[in-house]
Design a protein around this nucleic acid. Structure first.
Lengths: 202, 202
DNA sequence: TGTACATCAGTGAACGCGCGTTCACTGATGTAC
DNA sequence: TGTACATCAGTGAACGCGCGTTCACTGATGTAC
């Protein structure tokens, strides 16, 4: 860790975006380790890649722009993982369950990115409204269960909000106090799905 | 803000602990503003009080020791607020409801301290096991409801965990994305109490 | 085919800043005799 | 009652560090003529 890749050469003309990719990827790796956007230094990213610190400015206006780009990519990853899980499961109940479970496990498996995405101060400094997408899709998944009479009719938005809040909290507690003896996340999430959305799980 | 109190003089012999108090109180004020323990600088605390930065070392071994002391005090405050609310309410159901509602509102009203207490990296660096107290008392309050047949019998620890997780998440979302149009916290918490603990609220 | 030139991809030195922490110190106040 | 002395409460200069950002630059590569 920390040693620059020795094979790094200048990119060909027109290939300058490759460095951009590498910067975002490295920022993501460091943010996952740090779990805090304010702890990420642009110099550390450059050091890791083996370029001059100033080269970051070729692609990003400032530190915040880099963090924001990393968060957009990270969030897109999470949304895709949830969509894939829902699509792979059969039916509305299995779909909602898969979606919410992956929301939990993805976050639990990427504790650092989870913290930066949801708990760090970028949220205050930058517009991160792209995060609303995930909430929207959760509401839709709940609504599909209600429409199919597989969940008690009610306010789908409220149910989805409760689910998100509860899973968010369950993950946050585990991520922020990793030393404590927690119940497996999947068990708790299934219980929350039962109680909050009224699902009947096998 | 930022101007030292001009009336500050040296404390009398034997009164050295007064400065300690003032340092902790100032650290709490700044942490509430910052919402991040790593952003708190010992020099900023000293500046605010109007003492030399080195004077902090008369009472705290290092920056972490100061943050930890502030967090212990903050947590004690929260626990007392919850206990008082439960005591003031009548009966097990009112008591549990009051306790959980205050858990939410206290955190919502002290967003910065909430973040430092639950989401900042002190949790990784320092032993903060004093935080377990609040969880313990929540379990007991749930158990009292079950014992009085005012809540469906079940695993009180699991119910308390779900409640804590859900309230934690509900607060965290509001604190970290203050710009969004949230449902009033009290409404959501009452719904969570109903669904997760099976309480019948008036 | 040769060559001048524009452009692209990146560099390296330097700036000023605030930070945690160490160190040797100062001066008022209380106390033992 | 006077005075030497210990202690307490706090100071101020200095250290080395990593940071974000600016600036003028370099050298390879493709392109127009």
């Amino acid at each position: 860790m920390g040693t620059a890749s020795p094979s790094r050469g200048r990119n060909r003309r027109g290939q300058g975006d490759r460095l951009r990719e590498e910067i975002v990827a490295t920022a993501l790796r460091l943010l996952e380790e740090l779990g805090d956007d304010e702890a990420l230094s642009l110099r550390a990213v450059a050091r890791e890649i083996g370029i001059a610190a100033t080269s970051v400015y070729l692609h990003f206006a400032d530190r915040d722009a880099l963090v924001l780009a990393a968060m957009e990519r990270s969030h897109a990853d999470l949304v895709r993982a949830c969509d894939d899980a829902e699509a792979a499961a059969g039916g509305p109940v299995g779909g909602l369950r898969a979606r919410v479970q992956v929301m939990g496990t993805w976050s639990h498996e990427h504790p650092g990115l989870y913290k930066v995405l949801h708990e760090s101060t970028v949220n205050q400094r930058c517009d991160m409204s792209f995060k609303m997408e995930l909430g929207k899709r959760t509401v839709e998944a709940v609504q599909r269960c209600m429409d199919a009479d597989l969940a008690p009719a009610g306010d789908a938005a409220a149910v989805a909000l409760d689910l998100r809040a509860a899973v968010h909290g369950a993950v946050s507690m585990r991520v922020n106090q990793p030393g404590l003896p927690w119940e497996p996340l999947e068990e708790q999430v299934d219980r929350l799905l039962t109680k909050l959305a009224g699902l009947r799980l096998p």
